[in-house]
Design a protein around this nucleic acid. Sequence first.
DNA 1: ATATTATGCAAAT
DNA 2: TTTGCCTAATATT
Length: 302
Amino acid sequence: MPEGHSIHRLARQFQDVFAGQVLDVSSPQGRFTAGAALLDGRKLQEATAHGKQLFLRFDRGVILHVHLGLYGAWNFGGDESFRGASSIGAPRRIGERETFSQDAEQDAGSLTGSYAGPPEPVGAVRVRLVSRNGWADLRGATTCAAITEAEAATVLARLGPDPLHNLSGDRDEFIRRIRRRKTAVGLLLMDQSVVAGIGNIYRAEVLFRQAVDPWTTGGALDDETAGLLWDDTVAAMNDGVRDGRIVTTPPAWWNGGDAGALDGEAHFVYKRQGQPCRRCGEAVAMAEIGARKLYWCPGCQD
DNA sequence: ATATTATGCAAAT
DNA sequence: TTTGCCTAATATT
């Protein structure tokens, strides 16, 4: 159940541990057998992310396109070199499942510099990637397909700018796409064609941090406010990539000021309906909008 | 121990 | 507009 920061971390990990290597690709579950056969035995050239979409580019122009959806997850395991790469092996974070499974940690802990091979697949493993140094299992993804470069371009074409790329022109493009619409900004931030990578937590938290009423229409925002929304999203999501979890409150709001100890203090409004706003004390509100729960403080965001 | 929920999206209806 | 995904954390019995 990742937002964009998790997918960018995953792309980094795939780049670190698999890029440049020939991979064995299989579908133990059996639902991706044909796609796996297309990818099997090819070299992974590059791993990239845009928003919540992950692209693994193999040689001869075949791309593994994955979207985890609500509860998809990758699990990894392997030898020392594999384990030490990027954020793999980092402490398991709430809300991220891109780290080692418990079994894999036990396996890896018993290794002495060598890699004994992947474990028997447990559960519905849609795709398994195996290199000389380690393995990755995908479960529960909403999208998992072997596609061409042209098809990948089509996927990218329907996405808005990604705050984690923040390319030149992205900020202006975001402002344009927001202000063009008469929809509530609380909905627009979740619209991947407006901005790619924001999910329900960043949506609620960034709107709170910028004191923007989620029910304001995009067209009613001025350039400055829309620009500040983009800037704060860039900052918040980059923190998420660094930390491997979404923490939108500053240390001053944590009991003891220790990130490792924070529990229920990581967010201003997300999942805090009925509780007093950390800033003004008014009860945090919640409404279902577009089949998702929107959280905001009626006192601070008006 | 069992039930509910959810950091989404696409396909089916 | 509804369903599938078929996980894993959290809530409830």
